[in-house]
Simulated scan of single mutants.
Amino acid sequence: MRHLAIEAGCPPAQLALAWLLARPEQIVPLPGTRRRTHLDDNLAAPSVRLTPDQCRAVSEAVPEAFGARVPDLSRLEQ
C-alpha cells in the first residue's frame, strides 16, 4: 500500500484513514497515536481527497475482514 500512499502524497496510515472516511458506510476510525507527528497525520487525513480509482485500489489492497465483528452478548440479556 506504500506505493498508493506515495501516489496520494501522504503517509500510508493517513491514506488508510482517508480511505475509511471516504467509504459510504458510517465508519468512525479511532486511530492510536503515540507521537505528535502521528497525531498531525491523523488530523490531516480528512483533507486527503482520493479519486474513485484510488479508493478502488486501496480496497483491493486491503484484505477482506472476516469473523465476528460484534461480541456475543446474548448471555447478558438473560
Rank of each mutant, 00 (worst) to 15 (best):
D40H: 06
C10I: 02
G67N: 08
R2M: 01
I6K: 12
P31N: 04
S74E: 11
Q78V: 11
P12D: 04
W19N: 01
P29L: 01
A13L: 02
H38A: 10
S74T: 15
D40M: 09
W19E: 01
S59D: 15
L20W: 00
R35T: 14
I6H: 10
E64W: 02
E7M: 05
P71Y: 07
C55V: 15
A57M: 00
P46L: 04
V28P: 03
R35F: 11
P46K: 06
C10D: 00
S74N: 13
L43K: 06
C55P: 02
V48S: 10
N42Q: 03
R36S: 12
E60M: 07
E77K: 11
A65R: 15
L76N: 08
A18Q: 10
V70N: 06
A8E: 08
Q26C: 01
R34K: 13
A65F: 12
Q54H: 05
R35S: 13
L43N: 08
D72G: 07
T37H: 10
E25V: 10
L21P: 04
G67V: 12
I6F: 01
A61T: 08
F66Q: 10
L76D: 07
A68Q: 12
Q78G: 14
Q54R: 04
D53S: 14
P11V: 13
R49K: 12
A8R: 03
L39M: 15
C10T: 13
Q26S: 12
E77Q: 13
P12L: 05
R23I: 00
G67E: 09
R34G: 15
R34S: 11
T51Y: 08
L20R: 07
T37G: 09
A61H: 04
E7I: 02
H38K: 02
G9Q: 10
R56N: 04
A57Q: 10
E7V: 02
R36Q: 10
A22N: 05
A65E: 11
R56E: 13
D72Q: 09
R35Q: 14
H38M: 09
R56D: 12
P29F: 11
V58G: 04
R36G: 06
Q54V: 05
A8W: 06
A16E: 09
T51Q: 07
R34W: 06
R69S: 13
L15V: 09
P12M: 08
A16L: 09
Q78S: 15
C10K: 00
T33M: 11
R35H: 14
R35P: 01
S47G: 04
P52V: 05
E64K: 10
A45N: 04
I27K: 00
P31S: 08
T37F: 09
D40R: 11
T37A: 15
W19D: 03
H38V: 05
D40W: 00
A44H: 03
C10F: 01
M1Y: 00
E60N: 12
I6D: 14
